[in-house]
Design a protein around this nucleic acid. Structure first.
Lengths: 330, 330
DNA sequence: CTTATTAATGTAATCGATTACATTGGAGGA
DNA sequence: TCCTCCAATGTAATCGATTACATTAATAAG
């Protein structure tokens, strides 16, 4: 493994000159530049970035914390982040937090130890105060899920109106008794989606009925068991809006097992538009988030912070979209 | 941001002593140790690992190259890798290669630039010679998909016998005309799974029929279109074995659209046991790979190489399992 | 009481780059 | 011809840790 010293020696110049060539300084004559480049090629020299990083006190590396890489929702967001990162000479380090604050803290040490230049949280679990503190000292952005009032900017969608749009769709196609499947999590999105549901009912003069407001944990299994509970009710709803596609699919599976036809006997709306929704039978109506663009926007916000530009807003909401498929209309 | 110098000054000792405390050297008296620890706490000091890494010429970071984080197959493998890595003081950097050799090379620069200590390939796309070359110079392991004869060890399953087992299951439940849905990729696994299919037919005196050997690209869509082609055949098979669950699900969807009942009219086997297989309707029979253990084994192989132990075998095959669900039997 | 040994600590080199500052030599102006 | 200026290059400090080697002081051995 050769170093900048070896290159300098072989080219017959000083290390400063080699460094200048490496960094495209215009303070090197064409002749010496050629000389150095030949030496680099001959030695198959690759700079040791540990040296550079130490000197420059930066790593060109961004940490992305996601609850779980197995969640297909995040893959496109990550693609967007990577796109912008690579265009700007940054690399991305993806890490599974398992939605565990302890693991988040473990990874945040990479920031404090100077091994990454910034962090993008996909769904922060650490306390608000902690997040605010980190945001004060390092470039940080939240993307998708977020905590408000921390001073750490976030990229997301308007979950309230997305949810409203979903429920209104169910109303528009004739449903009046619509169940809601949410999550009792601390995530803002869960609360906002519930509020959107309530408002849509209200605006269409449908009474809110607590007995058909149910909760799961975002997974297929929780949706599946809620689906069975639903079928056991005496005054059965005719439709359901779930705040995650996995739960919606779980409900659908349970309902089909009971012999009901979807969407004729029962309509289901999901949320997120994961790829599985268009593979399922029936294909699932849902809300699509502009995931790729959200990733890009988040990375751009990090870049701004790295350039020392302080972001003067905390919230950046992108446009969502209603996707109508077989689970709500024929 | 305080440095080791600041801590030394505050504690009234030299930087060497602080460093010794940081590294649990037993050459420090209890009293000074306490002094230093107090200074560290007071300053909220976190060592700058760029300095340490440069000096030690290691990063305690492992690069994991996967085709795409959205492929649910890999998530458990990654969990296994992370488990072993964390237990040994390593961090894991996940990177999307999009199955593109160029992107792989880009990430491999992180190795050459000393920013990671080793690499685990989930499905290498670079040339055999390139892989061999890298394996000569750095700790490298292949996991899941692999290239043979490169000197780079790999962790996988016996794809031939797994495939044999899958096809034998279809034969055992009475099928004699069994289609195969493979991939014309360079991956060994695709070829081996085809060979397992052929051997299973042979051993049970079923003629191999080229007209029901079809190809896709591992995706749902390719399975879906093959499913439709299949239904158009005059001498229709009664079962199909697909070498990926996504393709199997695509086939099932197409077949259901044609009004056939699964498994009564047609049986389908997949491969990988991704979580969707047990959410689908019908639930899909498949082959399960010990993904978590494969990840653990791969990381353990890397650790061995990092400790300078040369691995004297190239191949490590773990046990697979046949999972029988609704898509083959009632 | 002197010397050898060792535990505890300090000094300074080191990892491999970048970069402030110093130096050199040649072009151009007076 | 001499001086100024600047392009091109070199020297050495620097980033923040680790660690080989030096030093000190205390203890044990003779």
């Amino acid at each position: 493994m050769s170093t900048i010293q070896d290159v300098a020696k072989l080219a017959g110049v000083s290390v400063a000159t080699v460094s200048r060539v490496l960094n495209n300084s215009n303070l090197v004559s064409q002749d010496t530049k050629k000389l150095v480049e030949e030496a680099i090629k001959k030695l198959d020299y690759q700079p040791n970035l540990l040296g550079r990083n130490l000197r420059r006190s930066e790593t060109k590396m961004i940490l992305v914390l996601l609850p779980n890489i197995s969640n297909p929702f995040y893959s496109k967001v990550v693609k967007g982040i990577e796109k912008v990162a690579h265009n700007n000479g940054y690399n991305v380090m993806l890490c599974n937090t398992d939605s565990d604050a302890k693991r988040e803290r473990m990874y945040l040490d990479l920031l404090k130890n100077h091994l990454t230049d910034g962090v993008i949280f996909m769904a922060p679990k650490i306390e608000k105060a902690e997040l605010a503190e980190i945001g004060k000292n390092y470039p940080v952005v939240q993307c998708c899920e977020y905590k408000e009032g921390t001073g750490v900017p976030y990229v997301s969608i308007d979950n309230f109106s997305a949810s409203y749009m979903a429920v209104k769709h169910l109303i528009d196609i004739g449903h009046r008794r619509i169940a809601f499947l949410g999550c009792e999590s601390k995530f803002n999105s869960a609360m906002q989606r519930k509020n959107g549901y309530i408002k849509a009912l209200e605006d269409h003069e449908i009474n809110f009925d607590d007995s058909i407001v149910l909760y799961g944990d975002y997974t297929f299994n929780s949706g599946f068991s809620v689906g069975h509970k639903l079928m056991a009710l005496k005054n059965r709803p005719t439709a359901l809006f779930a705040i995650s596609d996995f739960m919606a699919i779980g409900v659908i599976k349970a309902i089909k097992e009971k012999g009901l036809k979807i969407p004729d006997d029962f309509a289901v709306m999901g949320f997120d538009n994961i790829s599985f929704t268009s593979m399922y039978d029936p294909m699932v109506s849902t809300i699509s988030q502009p995931r790729y663009d959200m990733g890009r926007a988040a990375m751009e916000l990090i870049l701004k912070q790295l350039q020392g530009v302080q972001c003067n807003y905390e919230e950046l909401l992108l446009e969502h979209e209603l996707i109508i498929r077989e689970s709500t209309v024929k």
